[in-house]
Design a protein around this nucleic acid. Sequence first.
DNA 1: TATATACGGAACCACATGGTTCAGTATTCA
DNA 2: TGAATACTGAACCATGTGGTTCCGTATATA
Lengths: 123, 123
Amino acid sequence: MVQYSSFRVDTAFAALSDPTRRGVLEQLGRADASITDLAGKFHMTLTGMKKHVGVLQEAGFVTTQKVGRVRTCKLGPRGLEEEAAWISRYRQLWAARFDALDTVIEELKRKEKSDGRRKTRRA
Amino acid sequence: MVQYSSFRVDTAFAALSDPTRRGVLEQLGRADASITDLAGKFHMTLTGMKKHVGVLQEAGFVTTQKVGRVRTCKLGPRGLEEEAAWISRYRQLWAARFDALDTVIEELKRKEKSDGRRKTRRA
DNA sequence: TATATACGGAACCACATGGTTCAGTATTCA
DNA sequence: TGAATACTGAACCATGTGGTTCCGTATATA
């Protein structure tokens, strides 16, 4: 029984809301990398990148391991299951909400076409 | 290749990172509501709720309409398409990254199977 | 008309975020 | 050994966030 805590989803979505961090995830999807590698690739200081990696690690998206003086980052065990589940569930809700209201969807289509000249709307 | 604007995804994920706002979305999935309704349901001031609704509106998840003195909120035209796309794409990346590790991929397959069949999970 | 309701907006607050610099420590290598 | 490398951590800064209160305005209602 998968029970996702609100806290995890919070930190996960927060982690994903930064373009640098999404970039880091994509980068690590291609190859493992050190802090220095990532800092260089995203044009910021080591300290700055370390913070981002820390956030990703906190969210469970990244694991790191230090060998010698180099800390290597790689994708962690979480594959965004819970976030995918939340979004999927919401999309069902959303679709159901719009399915039920045919008139609204029609209204919406008309609106997108005529670009907001009509204000009269029944709901 | 899907081209999604980084800005939109940023604000979308940021909007979803707050549990109150996710709650509001789920609530609006069940029924439209006024600011006062939502403020009461989530135990905060009108002004506080108005800010949350503003964030959701900015992200395109919610639309509002004022009739008389009541502003009614409803789910907007965006159904998290871009966010679902990003996550789906990342999950593929992630899975490919772990292809080498047999135990993990087995775990993934088992999970995806049960995910696809039964969506019985709650928030 | 008087009053209660529902919102709008400004200002404030504590704390988080996304960066930086600076001063270390631990490793590697010539 | 000594110098360069790779990171760590503290401190700082500007801005953003999630709330609040206070006051104002428009609308509904008795």
